[in-house]
């Protein structure tokens, strides 16, 4: 069964994009979003992040950071990440504004806070289609290494869901098996589009 997946993190840069890139490579139907108000990228110090609007092209951010401090951003991996991202899609998208993108079957979040925001947002939308949406959270730290692992885990789980005859009937099993195998805790809930 072909499911529509959405990968969601805060800024739609690292974790969600890592998973997006991976799932896309595997031929899954995937989109990605951030739930933050703005897109934030680490800056020279914790107090000076680089802030962009959602919708700003990754390429533009890349140019911007290159101009600011190519050494720093190369070292912390931002440039590579942005380059990867720009190859996946044009610009970061905000979850709360994605109503036009249609209903997703699986929404994968990488942080409980994001999970809650997604749930909250879905709660506030109109239920029209009576279409089930599985919202899953897997906590992943927001760094490149963890994101890479998180992406693989997301892919694994999404593939399991995809393979299931009907995930609705076996979701508890799927998640339990996943948890046992990867020794990671998941959280999930159901919402309706």
């Amino acid at each position: 069964m072909k499911l529509r997946h959405a990968m969601v993190c805060a800024s739609n840069q690292n974790r969600s994009m890592e998973a997006h890139a991976l799932l896309q490579k595997q031929g899954l139907d995937v989109s990605s979003y951030g739930t933050g108000t703005n897109v934030k990228l680490p800056g020279p110090s914790a107090r000076e992040p680089n802030v962009y609007q959602f919708g700003t092209p990754y390429r533009q951010m890349l140019e911007d950071l290159k101009n600011k401090d190519p050494e720093l951003y190369k070292r912390n991996g931002l440039l590579q990440m942005l380059k990867r991202n720009s190859g996946v899609k044009e610009s970061p998208q905000r979850w709360q504004d994605n109503a036009a993108d249609g209903a997703f079957d699986v929404v994968f979040t990488f942080e409980e806070r994001v999970f809650d925001m997604v749930i909250d947002d879905l709660e506030n939308r109109e239920t029209k289609l009576l279409k089930l949406a599985l919202v899953i959270n897997l906590d992943v730290k927001d760094n490149h290494e963890e994101a890479a692992i998180g992406g693989k885990l997301a892919l694994d789980l999404c593939q399991r869901l995809e393979m299931a005859e009907a995930w609705e009937d076996e979701i508890d099993d799927i998640i339990s098996r996943f948890e046992k195998q990867h020794r990671r805790r998941l959280m999930y809930t159901i919402r309706f589009y």
């Binding site: 809650d116 749930i119 909250d120 508890d172 998640i175 339990s176 948890e179 805790r185 998941l186 959280m187 999930y188 809930t189």
Partner: peptide, 13 residues
């Protein structure tokens, strides 16, 4: 159930 954590979370939200 195995996924009681999710249920608890649901209750919280």
């Amino acid at each position: 159930g195995s996924q009681i954590a999710s249920v608890v979370h649901e209750l919280k939200s």
